[in-house]
Amino acid sequence: MALIELEDVARTFTIRAKVGRLRRERREVRAVDGLSFTVQAGECVGYIGPNGAGKSTTIKMLTGILVPSAGRLRVAGVDPARERTRLARRIGVVFGQRTTLWWDLPLRDSYELARRIYRIPDARYRANLDRCVELLELGPLLDTPVRQLSLGQRMRGDLAAALLHDPQVLYLDEPTIGLDVVSKVRVREFLREINTGAGTTVLLTTHDLTDIEQLCGRVMVIDHGRMVYDGGLDGLHATGQSERTLVVDLAGPSAPIEVPGARVVKVDGARQWLAFPAEDSAAPIVAAVAAGYPLLDLSVREPAIEDVIARMYAKVPIG
């Protein structure tokens, strides 16, 4: 069942810029430009792109905060722009940089308000709260005012607040931003449990690719408002034209190695680095090097996903 459907969705903003002393110029900026994708129930999708690529604009359209300028959009069977409050009961939203919790009140009070605002039946509220408290280890924090919580604790508190009403879809806008390593691990574990255990569909934006590697079976890359990649994490390498690196230790310093299918990118004494396309096999290259040079040791390095994506962003023409 498709839970999120976008068809040719566009969103333009009009920007008024001062030109000269009095004249003002109106300029149209396309933040999202003809975006189409579908997310099935139960998926966990990573949504990434550089700053200003249109990620937040997309999330705001999917929550009903912003109305699309063009195209068709449906979330959990609802048109977000037209039935915002109806949609609100079916989705959970966590903004990494903005809390929905009440600063001066104990964590418990924010949940109590959610129970009333979302009209959650008592039994279900208690069951969901108990589960969140257990998984996120919130027990000792429930009676602490939110302003006294650490960033990691507050993020866990926000996650629970977004899930008490059993949303079908959970949007996370940079859920691990600013968290320490331990907190990140805990948040990821919880999200995995919510996605695979409870079957909640998750769409998350992030700049931390570890989030994606550990959680998402699918990744969508957006740049300049357009989808530049949509598929599995492994497919990213092929699309991004990434290269693997063969690190070779020879018996002594030598001229750059010349073998078919690879090129030397760096030489440091007896050690040389050879780059070759990620989808090619390393075996023939290793064989060629071993046949022609005094080989002592070697290792193959996988491309870093950051580099792959950086290359992907760079490929898209600006304008």
């Binding site: 929550t63 009903g64 915002r84 409050t85 609100a88």
Partner: peptide
């Protein structure tokens, strides 16, 4: 940006 937070509540 807190108006956005209000807009995601029912």
């Amino acid at each position: 940006g807190t108006l956005d937070v209000m807009l995601i509540r029912p």
